[in-house]
Design a protein around this nucleic acid. Structure first.
Length: 843
RNA sequence: CCCCCUAUAGCCCAAUUGGCAGAGGCAGCUGACUUAAAAUCAGCACAGUCUGGGUUCGAGUCCCAGUGGGGGGACCA
């Protein structure tokens, strides 16, 4: 069949895709230069994909939305940077490699090739000249560069700490790889805590800025994500109070948010797994030590979840030690209990059972004294029952009692005074604590960025030195001869030749750090690399960074609400402080797309409720898929594939396409003057043009598609039963439809654009602007309500005044009938909407 | 247990931000085309906005209390 013949049958997505793909390949319409122009810029970015197999429906959705926004801003006359890359280091590749005995590179790059091919057809408007893969040495070289910069600044350091350890896979796990029940997401083994020396990034140094700068993103990021980040950082202000412990030289600091209640501290509790607890029991009696060890062992057997359950009864052991309260010299007993966490504050607390529920529960369990130091009252000013009897701690505001110099003060003043007293005595100070911990970045894995540090041997044992910047990247050794199976230490350590470095000057032998970096390091700055992805002299070009600036629009899943986004914000601030970028926040606006479900459930291969991206793409084409996703509902909402109709979208596209087809067939030659076109249709077209930009910018893509459907419907009516296809207004409408539709359906709109006699590509067309004069209505319809009921509709000139409208309403016989002999109390006129008349029975 | 989001037609969703509840679609029904069906085209019908209060001339929209659904946090001193 000839192409002509096929066209005669109407819209066929396959034909159209095949027609335009080679043209776009040739034109490369979305490649942009880094040179400054006088056009405004937008940087639109989707979170880059991990190459595990082909693209899936989740990708289809996120990339459709990102592309709508990228294409929209181009239509508004912006230079748009819209790049793509792959987050291609990570465990799945390594697991696949172990399982099949292949190189993780092969698996990774085959998947990337498959995803690239799918993307080509799906046709997001990427600038392919900037593509990056984090597993390329050309990329991870700059991970190492960033690491060394941070090492220089003291922001990368090594310490021994308790980490998540998977006893089956023999590796450290990230927090996010530990499931809610405390098992490893991969091996299913119960994760244990193990003390290991690991590399950390000092993100806690940035805690205040990471928290405070969230205020700038208010209204631009989903409030849910802002909340989650604030929660995660968890700043709490209070005081550090130093207690002496009998028989110990050093004083023990504790953190409290309520230094005002210091007089109510009746015991101290230390975390059993803290260093402090170990030190304290070292000199204790055999009996105490045995009891403590038993308790510690029991604590460590529990999962994090068990341990943090609020339902649990309090447990603990008395350490046979006493601390001295610095404000009143009182001796208080020291206990160990697992309700105190080793890694928050100082791993020890002062317990004020009257005013803290946890402390009260503990005190009641072990029969420890409870002393009220704050007189807390309810709303009616009635004193609350004594916590010792009620079992309910009073944690609110009140007047201090039994507290010496603090007596009579309210909570806020008492806190200030208590801190002043502590400072005067050298026993404490105001401090701030965070829930946020430093970022553990080392991993005992092969498929990641080698940490560019050398460890001394022999005389230099225990020394570290950074790899010289000029010898970056430290490339991964070949997998040849390497056993990637987990065995508790990094596979890289076994690559002897790679791991051993002899200093050419001194002849000393150094060993490479065998660990690789957390892959979240890779993704914490990739958006900057796009500024100059092929540049091998620097991580990114500052001039290009200046042109494009921070990402104007980020699109991705809410599952990254904490980790990726927090790490990216942190690294951006570090690079800002080092003078490499002039912005402090990387993502100015963010859209979190929902999930694609099937029959109300998350899709998964194991559940067998999978919608395959590739088969949908093959069956319905890219346009129909993209329109379906955009039309399904607000982008933040989940989409149930059972609720949508890809065929419905295809039908709409065919109807839209046929409009342009009809215009083409009408064969009107030469330029046409739209102003001579059908007035009604023009009005509809310009309403669409006026409304669409606001809708896109507020992410109401579903409404934009609905408006396009409406426009197609009215244009169809105009062609069949109105002005006819040759009318200039029909062409004007068809062009508007093509241009706006192009943000959703690049192929159909390109074909429409060609049928309307234009050169490719419609994607680079600036949107026509609405002619305001066409939007002005000559007449308005005003509703007249009498006592809430609609009694008449008045057609009035658009210029009608309130008084005229009121007069017209009262002149209506329907209105007069409704009023009858009742008395008018009030008339409210809101031009051009409504006249509301309120009556009451006549006197 | 605490916090946040959410509830509109059989289903997915709109509603100019306080002014006539319906834009669009799916499914349904009727008709045209067809030997018939599918596809296509034309048309039709369907709820008074989760419940109970309140503010207002007027509430889907604002406030309070509840219910269902979704999400987050949860011994952080």
């Amino acid at each position: 069949m000839t192409e002509q013949g096929r066209e005669a049958e109407g819209y066929d997505f396959k034909t159209i895709q095949d027609r335009w793909l080679p043209v776009w390949d040739e034109l490369k319409p979305f490649e942009v230069t880094d040179e400054a122009t006088d056009r405004p810029t937008k940087y639109v970015l989707d979170m880059f994909p991990y190459p595990s197999g082909d693209l899936h429906m989740g990708h289809a959705e996120a990339f459709a939305f990102g592309d709508v926004l990228a294409r929209y801003w181009r239509g508004q006359g912006y230079d748009v940077l819209h790049p793509i890359g792959w987050d291609s280091f990570g465990l799945p590749a390594e697991n696949a490699a172990i399982k099949r005995g292949i190189d993780p590179r092969d698996w990774t790059y085959e998947n990337i090739a498959q995803q690239k091919a799918s993307f080509r057809v799906y046709a997001p408007s990427f600038d392919w000249s900037r593509v990056l893969h984090t597993s390329d040495p050309e990329y991870y070289k700059w991970n190492q560069w960033i690491f060394l910069k941070m090492y220089e600044k003291g922001l990368a350091y090594r310490k021994a700490s308790w980490v998540n350890w998977d006893p089956v896979d023999q590796t450290v796990l990230a927090n996010e790889q530990v499931l809610a029940d405390g098992t490893s997401e991969r091996s299913g083994a119960m994760v244990v805590k193990k003390k290991l020396t690991q590399w950390y990034f000092r993100i806690t140094d940035y805690a205040d800025r990471l928290l405070d700068d969230l205020d700038q993103l208010e209204g631009r990021w989903p409030s849910k994500v802002l909340n989650m980040q604030r929660n995660w950082i968890g700043r709490s202000r209070g005081a550090e109070v130093e207690f002496e412990i009998e028989g110990r030289e050093e004083r023990v600091p504790v953190f409290t948010t309520r230094p005002d209640t210091l007089h109510g501290a009746t015991f101290m509790v230390v975390a059993p797994d803290s260093d402090l607890a170990g030190e304290l029991v070292a000199s204790a009696s055999e009996e105490v030590r045995a009891a403590f060890q038993e308790y510690l062992a029991a604590t460590q057997k529990q999962t994090e979840i068990e341990r943090q359950s609020t339902e649990r009864e309090k447990t603990g052991v008395f350490l046979d030690l006493f601390a001295v309260n610095p404000v009143n010299g009182e001796r208080i007993p020291v206990w160990a209990s697992d309700y105190v966490l080793a890694d928050y504050g100082h791993g020890a607390i002062m317990a004020v059972p009257a005013h803290d529920q946890r402390d009260l529960d503990f005190a009641r369990k072990f029969d420890l004294p409870v002393r009220v130091v704050v007189d807390v009252r309810d709303e009616d000013g009635v004193e609350l029952p004594n916590p010792a009897e009620s079992g309910v701690a009073t944690s609110g505001d009140g007047v201090l009692v039994n507290s010496g110099e603090l007596d009579g003060l309210g909570k806020t003043e008492a806190i200030a005074k208590a801190i002043a007293v502590l400072e005067a005595r050298g026993a404490g100070r105001a401090t701030t604590n965070y829930r946020l911990r430093d970022w553990l970045i080392s991993r005992q894995r092969y498929w990641g960025t080698p940490i560019p540090i050398l460890h001394g041997t022999g005389d230099n044992d225990g020394e570290m030195r950074p790899v010289d910047g000029t010898s970056l990247p430290v490339e991964l050794p070949s997998t040849e001869g390497l056993d990637l199976k987990p065995k508790g230490s990094s596979p890289l350590g076994a690559a002897t030749e790679w791991a051993t470095v002899v200093d050419p000057e001194t002849g000393e032998t150094w060993n490479r750090d065998p660990d690789t970096m957390d892959t979240f390091v890779d993704s914490s700055w990739y958006f900057l690399r796009y500024f100059s992805a092929q540049d091998d002299t620097q991580a990114f070009d500052p001039a290009a960074a200046k042109k494009w600036g921070a990402i104007d629009q980020y699109v991705g899943g809410v599952e990254h609400a904490i980790l990726h986004l927090l790490y990216s914000r942190f690294i951006t601030k570090v690079l800002h402080d080092l003078g490499y970028v002039d912005f402090e926040e990387p993502f100015m606006d963010m859209l979190n797309q929902g999930m694609v479900l099937l029959d109300g459930a998350k899709m998964s291969k194991s559940k067998g409720n999978l919608v395959e991206f590739a088969s949908e793409l093959g069956e319905h084409g890219a346009d129909a898929l993209r329109v379906t996703l955009a039309f399904a509902g607000p982008p933040e909402d989940d989409i149930d594939w059972a609720d949508v109709s890809v065929q419905g979208s295809a039908k709409f596209l065919a109807r839209a396409w046929r409009i342009a087809d009809d215009v083409e067939r009408a064969g009107v030659a030469g330029p046409v003057d739209f102003a001579t076109g059908d007035k009604e249709l023009r009005r509809a077209t310009h309403h669409l043009l006026a409304e669409a930009p606001g809708l896109v910018e507020s992410y109401k893509f579903n409404v934009v598609v609905a408006r396009l459907m409406e426009q197609v419907n009215v244009t169809r009516k105009a062609i069949d039963n109105g002005c006819g296809a040759a009318d200039p207004a029909v062409r004007e409408s068809a062009e508007a439809i093509a241009v706006i539709l192009s943000i959703f359906a690049p192929y159909a709109s390109e074909d429409m654009w060609a049928k309307l006699g234009h050169e490719p590509t419609v994607a680079l067309q600036t949107w026509p602007t609405a002619d305001e004069s066409l939007l002005v209505e000559d007449e308005v319809t005003m509703v007249v309500q009498v006592d809430k009921k609609v009694r008449d509709r008045l057609t009035l000139p658009a210029s009608v005044t309130e008084a005229e409208a009121e007069a017209a309403a009262l002149a209506s016989s329907a209105v007069q009938n409704a009023i009858g002999d009742r008395e008018i109390v009030k008339v409210v006129v809101r031009v051009p909407k409504i006249v509301s008349i309120v009556t009451k029975p006549a006197a």
